[in-house]
Design a protein around this nucleic acid. Structure first.
Lengths: 217, 217
DNA sequence: GTCTATATTGTGATAGAC
DNA sequence: GTCTATCACAATATAGAC
């Protein structure tokens, strides 16, 4: 067996990973500015100094968390949207996968959007990580296949002409809104967690058809 | 003429209002947790102590800003959605008014949604301010007319049956997304401000038709 | 690598002169 | 009402023992 150091409190734990995970939880629920290093250390079960040992500063930790979180979600979204799947099935697959994935961590989209508001410079690094180095407007290359697909379907008269940006704003907007507006919906419509889950199920079932009808000529 | 005190730097200014406005700007762009009392005072052209004189604490100021900001937008949204306007015109009017209003302060929706995430308890006060005291789930009363309208149109076979919550999530989601995702869209698609404005114009023109088609049976 | 202790700065808030 | 000066403490960050 390999000689491996063991933590006092957690025998086998990969400390760096535990810190990163705790940081993700705290950053996502408190927001980057509202998060406290103290709370992260506590949740990770380590001392606060260790956070600096591994990540140097709060800003470094925050960047690492954003990389980890956005590095999962953004590529998944882009790859699915730009796949070769036929448009109709692609829309349904996207809605289902997005809602099913995000409902497990419902505050993630809000965190990512807020983070991009305060640190827009962190996005390019994310996107190039998906597709390697790219010319200036990265999304043009990232939605190449989607673009061709939309043109083809429009030429065939099955849908109205629509650009990838608008398509993305429509599909993503419809999927994302329930999550970013979750507190509002819960309070305003008196939902509990179960009611919100049912609401998500209904959206999941209705959205693909709604989108397809909306795209019709 | 009434005897009125004058500030040293700004002859006629209503100080409290200047502070509130500066606070709104700073809170909206930095987020509540990231905002600094120092920066607000500077932007208002007054001393930091004055903020406490008028609003007691950062939390008090933050609550006042949220009341002021959400107190404009939320009632406008709800009243328009629940008006007696025929459904088709209502949808178009809503999309146009929402985009035209919010484009002047594009970060407002993000601020409101983030604020509701961290202080959901502040919403009920907002809603009751619109419609007076209400029984437990406020939105039920606030969308009474919309509800009736959707049922009537569904019974007539013009649209599919849809609940007010889903209707709101659809319409509002489509309108709101360009604003909350603005940084992402700008960076990912290499837009400048003018391109984003054109994008909004296109959305404004396309969304009403898209929604109506999507609602069809 | 992990801890305790401490330095250093940031930040909300108050006291008191004018 | 508005300012200057200052307090008190919270929060990030570092030093150094183990």
């Amino acid at each position: 067996m390999p000689a491996r150091r063991k933590s006092a409190t957690e025998p086998d734990g990969d400390t760096e990973r535990r810190i990163l995970q705790a940081a993700r939880n705290v950053f996502v629920r408190r927001g980057t500015a509202g998060a406290r290093m103290h709370e992260i250390a506590e949740e990770a079960g380590v001392n606060q100094a260790l956070l600096h040992y591994y990540f140097r500063s709060k800003d470094g930790l925050s960047a690492a968390v954003f990389r980890e979180v956005a590095g999962r979600l953004i590529p998944a979204v882009l790859n699915l949207l730009d796949s070769d799947e036929p448009l109709e099935r692609k829309i349904e697959a996207f809605v289902h996968l997005y809602i099913d994935t995000v409902r497990q961590t419902p505050f993630l989209p809000g965190y990512i959007l807020a983070e991009l508001h305060h640190h827009p410079e962190r996005l390019p690094a994310m996107v190039t990580e998906v597709a390697g180095a790219l010319p200036a407007p990265p999304a043009a290359a990232l939605t190449r296949r989607l673009d061709a697909q939309l043109r083809e379907r429009a030429a065939a008269g099955v849908i109205r002409p629509i650009s990838p940006v608008h398509f993305l704003a429509t599909v993503l907007g419809l999927c994302v809104f329930p999550f970013v507006a979750r507190p509002m919906l819960i309070v305003a419509f008196g939902m509990d967690d179960a009611a919100f889950e049912r609401f998500l199920d209904e959206r999941r079932a209705e959205l693909p058809g709604f989108i397809l009808r909306g795209l019709q000529p």
